[in-house]
Amino acid sequence: MPRHYAIVPAAGTGARFGADKPKQYLDLLGRPLIFHTLAALTACPEIERVWVVLSPDDPYWPRYDWSVLGLKLETVRCGGATRAESVHNGLQAAAMVAVEDDWVLVHDAARPCLSGQMLDAMFRELADDPVGGILAVPVADTLKRADAEQRVAATEPRDGLWQAQTPQMFRYGQLCSALQNHRDVTDEAGAIEAAGLTPRLVRGDSTNLKVTYPADLALAAMILRGRK
């Protein structure tokens, strides 16, 4: 049976957040934000190993105690200049155990509210899929296209549009090949699409938010408190 592994690229600086350190290390309910992300993955019985891809000179990781997350968690200091490079390097680190047909879930470091139910939905819906897929939610809001003066230039139809989330789950071999040949992408699904394949959309929900701005951090805290 194919095994499941996870990769969390965590070499970014989170510049849009405007904090004095990378946002994955900001405090969230008394722990660094990324702790909650990793806890969701390491707690999942189906996931055998979780690799965190750090920047080679990351000074923050050693300041925290990660031992409570258990033996599934491994760190590799091979983060690149882009997300695609970090994930590709993480896949190379996984080559010691992963084989062609194993599943790899790539998850954002700053998406701390992933639930077991969301992971179960992915495993269930993608188990026999030839390509794999991503968590996503249908776009609910009206979309406006701006002009150069930040005025509304057009209203865009939202029919059929989905907002991509993570995890994004693909076969190890296919993902390695896709990222090797298509580095100019913003997510793993983009590389898979560029390789001519069509990822499946697995419906998630809006609680699986990505912390990008300070208000998002407060909302993530509310979501996690509500679950407890």
Rank of each mutant, 00 (worst) to 15 (best):
R83G: 04
D57G: 15
A81T: 06
A195W: 01
M222A: 13
I223T: 06
L201P: 13
G132V: 02
P199R: 00
A153N: 12
S86F: 04
E48T: 10
V185P: 08
A19D: 14
A81D: 05
D20A: 08
L179R: 00
G14H: 11
T186S: 00
M122Q: 11
D205N: 15
G70R: 08
N181W: 05
C78W: 14
P112D: 08
L209Y: 06
H36L: 09
P2W: 00
V53F: 01
I223L: 03
T37K: 01
L135G: 14
L219A: 13
L91N: 00
Q168N: 08
N208F: 02
V68F: 01
V106A: 10
A218V: 15
D20M: 12
G160R: 03
L91A: 02
G80M: 07
G204P: 13
A121R: 11
L69Q: 09
E156C: 13
Y5A: 10
Q180E: 15
L219E: 10
M122R: 04
D57C: 14
V68N: 02
D120T: 10
F35Q: 09
R183T: 09
L197F: 04
H107Y: 07
S206G: 05
M1V: 08
S55Q: 09
N208E: 02
W61P: 03
P32Q: 10
R111E: 00
V50P: 13
A221F: 09
N208C: 13
D57E: 11
A95H: 07
A215F: 14
L209F: 05
T155E: 09
A178V: 01
W51T: 14
R111L: 03
A148P: 00
L175V: 02
K144S: 11
L135T: 12
M169I: 02
R124W: 07
I192D: 06
D27G: 09
D101C: 15
Q174W: 04
G12N: 15
L26T: 14
V97W: 00
E85D: 04
L219Y: 11
W51M: 06
Y5Q: 07
G12T: 06
L105Y: 14
L54Q: 07
V211Q: 09
A81M: 04
L119F: 06
G116V: 12
D205R: 11
A153M: 10
D65N: 12
K144P: 05
D187K: 01
L217Q: 11
K72F: 00
Q24K: 10
A140Q: 13
R31Y: 01
V87S: 03
L175M: 13
V53S: 01
A221I: 12
F123H: 06
F35R: 08
D128A: 11
A140N: 10
G79K: 03
L224S: 03
A84R: 05
R151S: 15
D57V: 15
Y5F: 13
V211C: 14
D102M: 09
D65L: 05
K21M: 14
L29E: 08
D101S: 15
V139R: 03
H36I: 11
D184V: 09
P9D: 04
L209E: 06
A146G: 12
V131P: 04
A195N: 09
C113R: 01
G160V: 02
G226W: 01
H36P: 04
A146P: 13
A109P: 05
L29K: 05
P32E: 05
H4V: 14
G173I: 05
S55A: 15
L197A: 10
T155V: 10
Y25R: 14
A39Y: 11
A220S: 12
T37D: 01
